[in-house]
């Protein structure tokens, strides 16, 4: 889909959802679920992410009527997700995230993935969010820009610098 058509489709869906269409909101959910998941995963313990994804979309549904620019939906939703993660971290007690080896069998691939994620999470916010969206969620740079409301240039810089830092820390 061209950028113009993607924008038109987004505007159509947001307006329909604002008008009460559950199907339109369902489509927005399907389109943006990965990005919300990635934003949360870059900030909060993995076990909390699924529930928080639902909370973010619940909040979005409740507040959708206040969104004046339908084209800004991606950035608006991403901001809700970041705020939700911040609130969650502020309220939760200091905890250590358990690996799946506790109480279960060890999956070496999964263990390595969690170890890499832990390193990604040591990066500055902007870098870790963009890298999680790219490397975990499998989104491209242009997709990340659309879904998060960041400019393509910012995403590209974040990817470049974040990857450079990640390589250094992994080595």
């Amino acid at each position: 889909m061209t950028d113009d058509l993607a924008r038109l489709d987004l505007v159509r869906l947001v307006r329909a959802a604002q008008g009460g269409s559950r199907q339109a909101f369902g489509e927005l959910y399907a389109q943006h679920r990965r990005s919300v998941h990635g934003i949360l995963l870059s900030r909060v313990p993995r076990a909390e992410v699924e529930d928080l994804v639902q909370d973010v979309f619940m909040t979005a549904m409740q507040r959708l009527g206040t969104l004046r620019e339908p084209e800004a939906f991606g950035g608006w939703l991403a901001a809700i997700a970041r705020n939700r993660a911040t609130d969650h971290l502020r309220r939760m007690p200091q905890t250590v995230e358990l690996t799946e080896a506790v109480g279960g069998t060890v999956d070496p691939d999964r263990t390595e993935a969690l170890a890499v994620l832990a390193v990604v999470r040591t990066l500055p916010d902007a870098y870790r969010e963009t890298l999680v969206l790219r490397l975990v969620e499998g989104m491209t740079g242009p997709e990340i820009a659309v879904r998060t409301g960041l400019t393509a240039a910012s995403v590209r810089v974040n990817l470049h610098r974040g990857m450079k830092l990640l390589r250094e820390r992994l080595s």
Partner: peptide, 11 residues
């Protein structure tokens, strides 16, 4: 390699 490793954490 990172993509393959981290994809297991995808929703």
């Amino acid at each position: 390699r990172l993509e393959r490793t981290l994809a297991s954490l995808r929703q």
